[in-house]
Structure formats: C-alpha cells, structure tokens
C-alpha cells in the first residue's frame, strides 16, 4: 500500500479533534477530504506531517512507519504539504522562496558553495515558477504579492521538494473564481505525476479533481468512497451538503 492511515486519534483536552480515522491511498490517486469547519481536517494533516504526535494509531508510507516523524524527515521521504494560512518567507524574493524549497531534498550536499552555482535547484526553481506562471514576478519580495499569487507560491514551495505525496490544505482559500479555476487546472496537471490529498471547501473543485472523497465530521470519518457514492450518501447529505445537492 502506498499510503495508509490506521486508527489515528488526537485530542486536545476534552475535544476529540481526530477520532479513529483510517484510510488507504493508491499511488497516483487524488483524495479530497471535505467536511464542515472544525471537522478535524487540518488536525489530521498536522498529525500526519508530524506537527504533533498522534495519541494513538499509525501512519504508513511506502510500507514504512512514518508516525510522528518530524516534518523535515518526512520531506526527505517524499511527503510535502501546503498550509491553509499562507506560510511563506515574506522577506525573501519569490525566486529565493522556491529555490530554498528546491534545495531541501539535497540539503547535505555542497552545503557551503554559493547558491547561484547550484545548477539543479536553480533550474528546478525556474521550472516551477514557469509552471505556476510566476516567472515574471521572480524578483519581487514575496510579501508584496497579491493574495492569490502568494497562494500559488505556497503551492510551488510544496511542489519544489519533489514529493511523491502532496497534502494541500485548502489551496484555493481566499482565491478569486478565476484563480480557483487556474488552480483546478494546475491540480489536473499534477494528477498522475504525484499522489495528492487535498482539503477543500470549494465543491466544484472537489468534484473536478477527486478520484475519491473522504468526508469528516467532528473528528470522525463519515464517508469514504468514489465521488458519486459520497454524493448519494444520506448521512453526508444531512451533515454537510444540506439541501444544496
């Protein structure tokens, strides 16, 4: 199994933020996690990526234990994530942001030669900026970009580590409809190249990109299946979709 979460639990005081969550993921698929605010989606990401350890349960990646492993080690193994609240290096240029992210996988090699002489990360950074359409803005300070461009940069930094599993936490948060559309296209480009887990509120996007959908509510898994199955699920309708669908 490529990626597997087994009976993961995490509570904060009396709040059971993640309760017995299990799912598996095949290589190359895209899984969306949906659910109302406070359903425990971001906490699930935080537990998977080692921000804090789980109370119980395990996370397996490519057949090895990665439960509670610190983020930098996970990154070396090929798991990268983006953040719901833009989490970039405001004072560095766009290019520096991406290049720093690119050098992460090979952090130990040639640590003290000048950065501009490191061919691989330089070219890789250019390639990613091109993919995101940020090439024109390469020398801008990241903090001066528009919200949407900062969101793209956030995605770019996540991809720069060349992960085989990406966790996107609401990549379209605060984006305009145009930008959201572009992001959907971007995710389509990424599908097949990497395995994706995505937390998303935009229902159109969820159905446009997902191979599978996992619905969470109050820390529990409410449903897990193909998009059509989830759409038909009565419990999900009641808890989440309301009368919209």
């Amino acid at each position: 199994m490529f990626f597997e979460v087994k009976e993961l639990c995490r509570s904060f005081g009396a709040l059971q933020a993640v309760n017995n969550v299990s799912f598996t993921l095949d290589e190359g698929t895209t899984l969306s996690i949906i659910g109302p605010n406070g359903a425990g989606k971001t906490t699930l990401f935080n537990v998977i990526t080692g921000v804090f350890p789980p109370d119980k349960g395990e996370v397996m990646f490519k057949g090895t234990h990665v439960t509670g492993m610190p983020p930098d080690k996970l990154c070396h193994r090929g798991i990268a994530r983006s953040f719901q609240i833009t989490n970039i290096f405001q004072g560095l240029s766009v290019f520096e942001n991406i290049r720093l992210a690119c050098q992460g996988r090979k952090a130990t090699k040639r640590m003290f030669s000048h950065v501009s002489k490191l061919k691989e990360p330089m070219e890789e950074a250019e390639r990613i900026l091109d993919l995101l359409g940020l090439l024109d803005l390469r020398d801008w300070r990241a903090g001066t970009l528009s919200h949407g461009d900062q969101r793209y940069l956030e995605i770019g930094m996540t991809l720069a580590a060349k992960p085989s599993l990406v966790l996107f936490d609401e990549p379209t948060a605060g984006m305009t409809p145009m930008e959201t559309k572009a992001t959907i296209e971007l995710i389509h480009k990424l599908k097949g190249m990497v395995t994706i887990i995505i937390i998303e509120h935009d229902i159109n996007m969820v159905f446009a990109v997902s191979d599978r959908i996992l619905v969470m509510d109050q820390g529990n898994v409410l449903a897990d299946g193909l998009p059509e199955e989830v759409k038909a699920n009565e419990a999900v309708k009641a808890a989440y979709f309301g009368e919209e669908i």
Binding site: F89, L100, V115
Partner: peptide, 29 residues
C-alpha cells in the same frame, strides 16, 4: 560572505523569515 551566500545561508534566511515553514521544506531547524 561565502557562508551566507551558500545554501546553508539561504536556510538561515528562511529561519529568520518564517521558522515554522522551514522543516516542511526538509531542513532541520
């Protein structure tokens, strides 16, 4: 100058700008 211009120097700048993000890029803060 060599140190701050190196990849290691970039990591330091990253830590200064946003320490919490750095581990997710694969560096040990």
């Amino acid at each position: 100058k060599l140190i701050v211009g190196s990849p290691f120097g970039s990591i330091l700048s990253g830590i200064r700008e946003n320490e919490n993000r750095v581990p997710f890029l694969g560096f040990n803060v």
